[in-house]
Amino acid sequence: MSRATRRIVVAHLTSRGMTPTEIADELGVSDDTVRRDLREEPPPAPAPEPEPAAPIAAGLLLPESTQLRQNLSLLAAAYKAQPEDVAQFAIHQAARAVRARWQARIDARAKQQA
């Protein structure tokens, strides 16, 4: 194990409440090595692991978003459907509402001109 990796592991185990002696036994190093690792500047936190991508509807690419993935999963569970079917349903519902508003505007203009 590299020194940098060991320092990260030591910092993690310390945050979980392990003593330097317990950590030394766990890692197979001396107590002094663990104490030296703890005295030094803490290592930078590792970059977070990227979340797995949400399934993408065939022919439809959506921007990667945790919130979008959560919303899609919630709707899929509620409707007991595949995420692709839920996305298609939501798009159709939104388009239907837009068409209705447009038609109302067209009707209102026609009424004004009559």
Rank of each mutant, 00 (worst) to 15 (best):
A54F: 00
M18A: 11
L68P: 03
Q70V: 12
P20Y: 05
R105N: 08
P44A: 12
A47R: 14
P20I: 06
V9T: 13
A11P: 01
V86D: 07
I91N: 08
L38D: 00
D32L: 11
A100P: 05
N71A: 14
A94M: 09
L68A: 05
L38H: 01
S15R: 14
A87L: 14
Q113V: 13
R105V: 11
V9Y: 05
E26T: 11
E26F: 10
L27A: 01
R39S: 06
D37E: 04
R6N: 07
E64N: 10
R105A: 14
P44M: 06
I8M: 13
R3N: 06
R96D: 10
A108E: 12
E51S: 07
A77Y: 03
E26Q: 10
A108M: 11
S65F: 02
A97M: 10
E40C: 14
R3V: 07
T21R: 14
Y79L: 09
P46E: 08
E41R: 15
S65G: 06
T21Y: 09
Q113W: 11
D37I: 05
A58I: 08
G59Y: 02
V29T: 01
Q70C: 06
S30R: 00
N71D: 12
S73H: 09
L74G: 07
V98G: 00
P50N: 02
H92F: 07
P48A: 05
G59W: 03
A81W: 03
A4T: 13
P44C: 05
D31F: 05
Q82Y: 07
V29E: 01
I106Q: 15
W102T: 13
V10F: 06
E84S: 11
T14A: 14
R101V: 11
S73Y: 04
E26A: 15
A4W: 09
L13K: 09
L27D: 02
A108P: 08
D107T: 15
G17C: 08
L62T: 14
V9Q: 11
M1C: 02
A76L: 02
R101N: 12
T19I: 02
V86M: 14
P48E: 00
E84I: 02
L38T: 06
H12Q: 15
R36A: 05
R99N: 12
A47G: 00
H12K: 14
A87Y: 10
S30W: 00
D85H: 08
G28Y: 01
A78W: 07
S73R: 09
Q67L: 15
P48Y: 01
K111A: 15
P48R: 02
A53F: 02
E22H: 03
A76S: 15
A24T: 03
Q93K: 09
L72W: 00
I8Q: 15
G59C: 00
R69F: 07
D107V: 12
A54H: 03
A97Y: 04
R16D: 09
T21H: 11
G28M: 01
A77E: 11
A47L: 12
P55M: 01
A95E: 13
P42C: 02
